[in-house]
Amino acid sequence: MKLPSFDYQAPASLAEAVALLAAGDGSARPIAGGQSFLPVMAFRLAEPSLLVDLRNIPDLSGIKISDAGVRIGAMARWRDLLDDVRLAEAMPLLPAAIDHVAHYQIRNRGTVGGSLAHADPAAEMPTLALTCEAQIDVVGAKGERVLAAADLFTGALQTSLEPDEIIVAVRFPAWAKTKRWGFEEFSRRRGDFALAGVALCYDETEGRAANVRIGAISVADTPIRLKNAEAALEGRAVDAASIEAAMAAASGEVDPAGDIHASARYRKALVGTLLGRALESAAGRKAR
């Protein structure tokens, strides 16, 4: 559980960072807050030759809120999001969910971009990005590109990023003030990895749900959308009957694995339970 030997660079520009990664020929890795990747290295599950620390690169952090939505720099830390009172107004789902990220100390160091790149299916941010149909801005040796969140996550701890690509920002689309939302997750102790979690949002017009988006945490290799549960609610009033239908659909459409913390059967049921609770809090929250 001691770190393997590696070289370290903390370049002052994005271009320099990309060049270092490209020169590393697949064995150089970028590092942001280090809250996930350093333990991975200590367990010798990864032994990069070079760590490229992104801390000195200007303009990688910061939260911008505009009519176009919320743009969060990759190096923004969880603490920055929780401290930004504008965010609670502009996109309340985000701070509500991020409040569940690990522990106090980890929230002071861990970053949004790091979490997206680490692609842990038990983490909050990947599911939030997927649920809210965020765009991920990426820079690499071949230039800039934009990835839909749905195209980023390819497997457990795996992404479609090239070894020389760095996440620059995540952009969430405009969030109507009237949007309804819910977030629930359950872990064995507060701050542990979620056994399951649900993030959702929808618009409400004339008492009916529209644009229903439901994402789930920790029930598959990647964050997933619960399409059947979404369909069970789309165009319907969010009431006891539709909530029950959505819960059943959610439990029916996931196929989680069991592990030392929870059985597959439990996780399947839990995702339905959490969806029910998230919908109740979404429907019960005072409309603005």
Partner: peptide
């Protein structure tokens, strides 16, 4: 919460304090 779980081949599946869940101060 605390359990040292083995698989059928006798390998210990608990390798860190993320797996072995001791009570936290606030629990």
């Amino acid at each position: 919460s605390e359990e040292l779980v083995y698989n059928a081949e006798g390998q210990l599946l608990v390798g860190s304090l993320a797996d072995y869940l001791v009570p936290l101060a606030s629990d």
